[in-house]
Structures are given as C-alpha cells and as structure tokens.
Amino acid sequence: MPKIQIKHQSPHIDMTPMVDLFSLLLTFFMLTATFRPDEPAPVDTPYSVSEKKTPDNNMMTVTISADNRVFFNVDNGQDTILHYRPKILEEMGKRYNIEFTKDELRKFEKGNYTLGVKMQDLKAFLNCKDAAERTAFEKGVPIDSLDNQLAMWVLYTRQVNPNVQTLIKGDGKVEYPTVKKVLSVLQDYQVKVFNLITNLEKVEVTQKVE
C-alpha cells in the first residue's frame, strides 16, 4: 500500500496583498491628516442640527473653557506665504511695546497654539521648553474693560486679514454672562456673523396633521 502523502503546506502566508493594502491606507491617512491644534483645555461643545462645515482657513477661534477662561487662535491664511500669524503678533507687540525676535515670531507661527496667555507673559511663554511649562501661563486672555486684550487681538486680526471669519467654541457649561461678554467684545469690532462650533445631532421633527 502506497503511503498517502499529505501535502506539506508551508506555514508562511503570502503577506504581499496585505502589505499593499496597508501601504495604501497608510498613504491615505498620512496625506489627509490634518492635525488637531493643541487644546489647552478640554471643551465639550453643545449639539445642534446644523450641517454647515467649519471653514478650512481664514478663521479666528475664540474658545471659552468650562472654567470661564478665554482663548484665542487664528490661522495662517490659505497660503503659507501669507504669514498672518507672525504679522498679527508683530502688531500686537507694537501695541504693548514688546519687541519679538525673529525666532519668537517663527515659533508663534509654527506652534499653532490656542493662546490663553497675557501679552505680558507671551515672550516667556514662547521661550518655554515643553508643554508643562507652558500650561503655567495659560490663565486665559484678559477680557475685562480695563485690559481688554481679546479686543486687541480681534482688532489686529481683522486689520491683517479682513476676510477672517469668527468662530466661537464654547463649553456647554459656560455661564451666559461670559459668553455675552465675548460676544459684545466682538460686536464692538463690527463682527456680526458668528459661527458657533457644535457637534452634529440629528433630530426628526414631524408635525401632526389634523
């Protein structure tokens, strides 16, 4: 009787298609990746039914965290040549008599910080080595009438980039008076259209037919 030979199968699996697929996915994710800017404070935005998308560029974002701190951020414009961020900072420096070095301006441009820092602390903030050092300065942009730095940021941002759109990102738990203060600062500088950042939530409404 001849022995029945079981075909010896190699335990190796051909991984080539898998690798192909993986490299495709990897390339896709690498190219589409837009990194979230650093969030100094967690913000839980409320829900709405609006399906309008946030603009890609030309936006200034005022963030209000749950502990009523106000943060400010602005993007660099649709093209990197425009350098809106350092231009705005330079103007701000002139207003508050702070001279920023080239290196500091570059740092400000590159490290897309959501600013919650007083102008007076900004130089020290930019020269911080790591994130832990930076958080110590993040007390929020002052918005009281005595020292309204948010207003100055808004003013110079709109001077440097007239097409800027205003976004407000607030935590659901923020008390209304703080929101009102921020809104009135913006209204003082002729901002009329506000985009409130929200999460999408579908709602179905049906009307009873009598």
Binding site: L25, T34, S50, F194
Partner: peptide, 22 residues
C-alpha cells in the same frame, strides 16, 4: 495606521451660524 487614524480630525466639527445686529 492606527496612529494616523486616531490623530486625524477626520470629521470636521460643524458650525451653526448666527447673525447679531450691530
């Protein structure tokens, strides 16, 4: 892949527009 999937802000947040008078 896992890293990129988790770090990308894949779905952009939505905005709700309001217009306030001057």
């Amino acid at each position: 892949i896992t890293f990129f999937m988790l770090t990308t802000a894949f779905s952009k947040p939505k905005v709700m527009q309001i217009v306030l008078p001057e």
